[in-house]
Structures are given as C-alpha cells and as structure tokens.
Nucleic acid binder design. Structure first.
Lengths: 230, 230
DNA sequence: ACAGTTATGCCACTGAGTGGCATAAGTTCA
DNA sequence: TGAACTTATGCCACTCAGTGGCATAACTGT
C-alpha cells in the first residue's frame, strides 16, 4: 500500500487545518484506504491508461475487495475525479459561511473560489488534480463524470445562495447564470493550468483563475470581424 | 417496427428541407433503423426507466441485433441523447455559413442558435427532445453524456469561429467564454421549457431562450444582500 | 446475372457494477 | 478483560454494457 498520509479527503469542513487527526480508528482506516485507492488509481491510470486498468488490478494493488471499492466510490470514473470533487464540495462549504462582502454576487463567488483554493491541502493536492485533469482530457467517460458532478454541485451552491441571500427569487436566472459563468471561467483556468509544464502549484492555478475571471466581462462585448477583410 | 418517417437524423446540412429523400436505398434503411431505435428507446426508457430497460429488450423490439445498435450509437446513453446532439451538430453547421451581421459575438451566437432551432424538424423533434431531457434529469449517466457531448461541440464551434473570424487569437479566452455563456443560457432555457406542462413547441423554447439570453448581462452585476437584514 | 461492397447477425468474451450473507474488526459498557 | 453490539469488509454469483471476429445476406453497379 502506498503512502497515504497525504491530504484531507472529505471536503475540508469549517474546522481547522488537519481534520483527519482526532477521528476514531475505524474512520481513519477508511480514510486511509480511500486515499490509497485514489493515489493508486491516478498512478496506474496515468501509466496504463484508464481503460487499460481493470478494477480488479487496482483493488489487488491496494489489497481491497472490489466490493469495498464500490462502498467508497460510485464508479471507476469517480475515484479518478475525487480530487476535483473534494474541491467543489469545499467550495459549497465556503459559500455556507461567507459574508456578503463583495458588491456583486459574481465577485463574491470568485473570491470564495480563490479562498477555497488556498484552503486545499498544500502537499499533494495540486499534483493529484493535475493527473486527474490530464486523464480526463484523454478519457471521455471521466470528463463526462466530472462535468456532471460539477453540475450537481452548482445546484447545491445555488440552493445555499438562495437560502442565505436575497436574490430575486428562484425563477430569476441571474444567480444561476453567475454560477455558470464562474464555473466556465474555472474550467478555462484549469485547461490552461493543466497544459503548463513543470510542477503544478496552487499559486499558479490562482493566477490562471484571475486571468480567466478578468476575461469574463469582455466575453459579452467581444466584437467579430471576418478574417481577411480588415 | 414503429413509424420512422419522422425527422432528419443526421444534423441538417446546408441543404433544403427534407434531405433523407433522394438517398440510396441502403442509406435510407440505415436512417430508418436509426430513427426507430431512437423512438423506441425514448418510449421504453420513459415507460420503464433507463436502467429498467436492457439493450437486448430494445434491440428485440426494433428487431435488430445488439451489434447493429452499436454501429449506430456509441452507448446506451447516446441513443437517448440523439435529438439534442442533432441540434448541436446543426448549430455548428450554422456557424459555418453565418455572416457576422451582429455587433457582438455573443449576439451572433444567440441569433445562430435561434435560427438553428427554427430549422429543426417541426413534427416530432420538440417532443423527442422533451422526453430526452426529462429522462436525463432522472438519469445521471445520461446527463453526464449530454454534458460531455456539449463540451466537445463547444470546442468544434470554437475552432470554426477562430478559423472564420478574427478573435484575439487562440489564447484569448473571451470567445470560448462567450460560447460557455451561450450554452449556460441554453441549458437554463431548456430546464424551464422541460418543466412546462402541455405539448412542447419550438416556439415556446425560443421564447424561453430569449428570456435566458436577456438575463445574461444582469448575472454579472447582480448584487447580494443577506436575507433578513433588508 | 455477376462481382464488389457493406451492413447485419451470431457467438463468445471482457469487465463494470450489484445483492446477499457470513465474518472480522472496531466500539461500548459492565 | 470480556461480552454484546455495531459496522466495514470479503467472497460469490449474477446481470448487463460493450467489443471483436467471421460468415452471410442485402444493396450496388455493370
């Protein structure tokens, strides 16, 4: 079993830094196998491809039964997308506690996202997300799974927003569209960040995020001219 | 085999109304079984649920071998999402021929989308999309598949745009974000349209689309105030 | 009618995902 | 410390989506 003393697995709750410390032994073990499955999966998927790795192989490597795998993850895709999903879960968590300090909703969402990023485990999280994203680019079913999780999370975020704040009612599309815009920008930032060579860092991702956020207003007003005729 | 003289299946090319007429017999047959598979799939999935219907059952009902099914569709999800996918394909097609008449890119995209909608078959297309969407709302794997196809199509659309028009280079995120915004609005419109009672029409969808488009600018400037404290 | 092309059917096979049940490991309380 | 309880795990058998190979039937043009 590979080293599994890496990052927090369940989305960092409101609590402090390391939340996996003072848990009952049983819970800690569960967390450890979960993390081992994630790390080993990313490793083997990267090396032999997603389709080139069977669940039986993965489970053998981590020394767990397939049944146990499916108690931790809903599908083969799920285990590989776990790092990103933890992030989204943490984001919704952040929305839960955030004060409406920014003038516009979109800015508040962007700030929350950047703050959530800073709160992700510093050690190996960035690398795991990178592997996960590069894998997803090659693996349609993984990408689809990620997109769907993202969509579900968006609904959850919207529910939190509507519960906490006064945003023109549930029929008003603007809040939802603001979330959609946020996520679009996030995905563009991820694309760019994923293509960067060298060691991935949260700081670099934060920078790419700011760039993407900055491009948002211009996307609504961008004008179009034919290629040849100036 | 159910009636299959319904709509065009491959995304309506640049040609006129009915393009499935003057094709070789073999092609027509292929089109017909394809359409039969789609219609029967939507029917049975709606009645017995997506997971409650096996491919063997479906293939038996249409009287085709499972092997043939997979020559027409890439997966079980694929057949159920075909109506929407035809639409996206037609949209990219529309981008290919459109003149840059609108001031901003986003408006051009919106116009193209509305125009594409008008060009979809009038008879049963709306109903098929409705069934497909209602199914997708209940079936995670279908929704995921649709989201992924949408994402792929977006890349194709972006490629067309960059080839035909001068939009600040490939590194400029604005064009891609404009597409993302368009798609977000489209999905919101679909959500609302899908929830409407009664017979679905293209006109109603067009109206919901316009509503969603209208909400876009406000989504960037929407302000946020806590619930209780006025 | 004949030869060339291509869709189809059939069959066997891999691998993801599920349900049931016995068991082992962790937990609680006396 | 050990009994009683709770819960995660392992094992087994099973369904079903999806694939590859090959023979055959259906369309095509001459």
């Amino acid at each position: 079993m590979p080293d599994a003393e890496t990052g927090t697995t369940t989305g960092a709750t409101t609590g402090a830094a390391t939340d996996a410390e003072r848990l009952p032994l049983r819970e800690r073990k569960k967390l450890r196998t979960r993390q081992a499955l994630i790390d080993t999966a990313l490793e083997r998927f990267t090396e032999h491809g997603f389709d080139g790795t069977t669940l039986d192989e993965l489970c053998d490597a981590v020394d767990v039964s397939k049944r146990t795998f499916f108690r931790n993850f809903t599908s083969k895709e799920d285990v590989a997308m776990a790092p990103t999903q933890d992030f989204w879960t943490a984001f919704v968590d952040g929305l839960e506690t955030r004060a409406p300090d920014s003038p516009t909703l979109l800015e508040m969402l962007q700030d929350t996202l950047l703050e959530t990023l800073e709160r992700m485990p510093a050690d190996g999280w960035a690398r795991r997300v990178l592997l996960s994203r590069r894998l997803a680019e090659k693996t349609p079913s993984m990408d689809a799974h990620g997109l769907h999780f993202c969509d579900r999370t968006t609904r959850a975020a919207l529910a939190v927003l509507h519960r906490r704040f006064d945003l023109g009612g549930a029929a008003d599309l603007r809040a939802r569209l603001a979330l959609d815009v946020l996520i679009a920008a996030f995905h563009r930032a991820l694309d760019i960040w994923t293509a960067r060579p060298g060691t991935p860092t949260r700081a670099a991702l934060a920078a790419d995020l700011r760039t993407a956020f900055a491009a948002v207003p211009g996307s609504l007003t961008l004008t179009v001219t034919p290629r040849k005729a100036g």
